[in-house]
Structure formats: C-alpha cells, structure tokens
Nucleic acid binder design. Structure first.
Lengths: 148, 148
DNA sequence: TAGCTGAGTTCGAAAAACGAACGCAAGGGA
DNA sequence: TCCCTTGCGTTCGTTTTTCGAACTCAGCTA
C-alpha cells in the first residue's frame, strides 16, 4: 500500500523512481544497453533468479520500455527483448549514473567498457541544462516550486 | 552472493546502479532533493517502515552521499541528513529521471512541483553530450567497446 | 522415438520489508 | 522531583520478496 503508491502518484519524478527503483531493474537496463536481449543471457550473465527476471521483464514490457521481437534461429521462431523508443530514451538516466560512477566510485581508472561518440570519438557525459539559456545547472541553480 | 556482487564490480555503471537500485533509495533521494532532512519527515511523508529507512540512510551515509549535520532546535542538539558534494552530484541522475518522466509518464500536464533556473527562469532538462564536439547524443550515436 | 534447447513456471526455504510497540535522551511544565 | 512530549531510532513477530533447484513445454534434430 505504500511503495506501490509512488508508482501512481501524480509526480513525474516519483513514478520513474518507483519503477526503476525496484531491485534488479537498473542492472537489467544496464545489461540491455550493453546489448543483451535474451532471457537466457540475462539469467546467466547477471545471476538473477529466473522468476524475478521473468517478473522484471514483464513489468518493463507492460510499461512499454521493452518489446518482444520475434526472430529466427535454427529455423525456429524465438523472441528477444528490445528497447522501445521509450526505453531508448532512458539513455540519459544510464549515462547520468555512469558519469556519477566515474567521478565518485572509480578508485582507479577501472571501467568495464569504453564509450565514445561514433562521429568524433569523443567521450560521453550526462549533464543538466537550462532549456532557455542553455547554461549547465546544478541543484543550487534550480528553484523548486511545489505546484499550487 | 549475486546482487551484492554488482556493488563491488569494477564497472562505473553497475556500482551506482546497484546502490540506487535498492528499493526506496531513489525515492529517498527524491525526497532529499525536495528538501526533506529529518528522519521523522522522511518517515511520515514516504510511509516507509522505520527500520528500512534507518538502513537506507545508513547505507547512503556510509557511501558518503549523505552526512549527518547537527543543528539546534528548542535549545536541543539534533541531527539532520544532508547531501554531501557527492550526493549533490547525483542531481543529473534525478533530473534525467524527471525529464524521462515528463516525456513518457505524464498523461496530462500533471506535476507535483515546478523547476526553473534561478537566473533566467527557464526550464530544466537532462541530456547526454559529447565531451569533444558538444553534440547531444542518443544511445545510437555512442559506440560501446568492452575493455580489453 | 528420444534428446536437446530456450524460455519460462513452480515451490519450499531464506532474506527483506512491514508495522506496531518499545527504548531513550533531552527538554518543559507543575 | 515527576510526568509528558519529541525526535530518532531499535526490536520483534508477521507478511512479502527473493532465491535456487527442479520441473514443464514447445519446437526442432538425430
């Protein structure tokens, strides 16, 4: 009656936070952005229990973050889980996590993968900006006004 | 033996994802960015059980995301939970969640609060950009290279 | 016909979350 | 002094989730 209520609250931050804040969901999305698409591959690379994996995939399907896409293998029809446009649009969330991780959780230069802009080879960074003047913003530059 | 292993993996995305992906943690951070600072206020506004709240606050303290700051009230010394610099630097993660929520989870123009740039009054938006050429990037513009 | 494989489902045990009651220190008031 | 209140947790028995090993099932393959 309580965690679930955030998922239906009229707040554009609490709803995503409740959805992605379930255990395994962010890690599952990481795996998806890294290219994993099949049930068996999620299960073996993440060591998540099969029943929880089923549940999380279903929630993401229901929310429209993922879609099941049929494909052929060995002459058989199988399905894989792929990001929808809504799902792909979570990219800034993942990159914001990574940008933070690089700054604050990387004792050495450890990384398990590199990211770079296909066009120019540059690095990748998440940031917050003003839609009017384009300035980069931190929490302190932003005024919060409760509605009403 | 398995969820916890992501928290110590040498990957700058999986570590933050495991930390913030525990139930309640993202919602707790939302509340903090909205200005809540005291145990009692978290508990009453979020309807989280006191024991879980204690645990999540302690994890965030241990990780250095929050700090306990003494203050005076009614002549008594109390403590409140405040963001450290590391914690404040999670702002882009929260804003990325909100930017996504506004696009994909707002059936009407519902919002429980407004955000705007103190200087110019403009809106707030999270984005991903190239550190070299400054272009805004989507998942498709980025090449992933497993290290080694 | 039997076997294999990917993708789940089932189910008993373990871990996490819940929530109501309890503890405790530091005032304040009578 | 004694009792009450407040803020901040801790305890503990119950309910929910998660775990993980075994089971199912459909569609090939030998």
């Amino acid at each position: 009656m309580s965690y679930a209520s955030f998922a239906s609250m009229p707040c554009t931050l609490s709803r995503p936070a409740a959805l992605l804040g379930e255990r395994w969901t962010l890690l599952l999305l990481r795996q998806i952005f890294l290219g994993t698409r099949r049930f068996e591959d999620f299960q073996s690379t993440m060591e998540i229990s099969r029943s929880v994996l089923t549940d999380r995939l279903n929630v993401l399907l229901q929310e429209g973050v993922l879609k099941r896409v049929p494909y052929q293998e060995d002459g058989r029809t199988r399905h894989e889980y792929r990001l929808t446009e809504k799902g792909r649009d979570l990219y800034p969330v993942m990159m914001a996590l990574r940008t933070w991780g690089e700054r604050w959780m990387a004792p050495e230069e450890e990384e398990s993968f590199h990211l770079h802009h296909r066009n120019c080879g540059g690095g990748v960074r998440a940031k917050v900006e003003c839609t009017e003047c384009g300035a980069e913003l931190t929490a302190r530059d932003v005024q919060v006004t409760p509605k009403q």
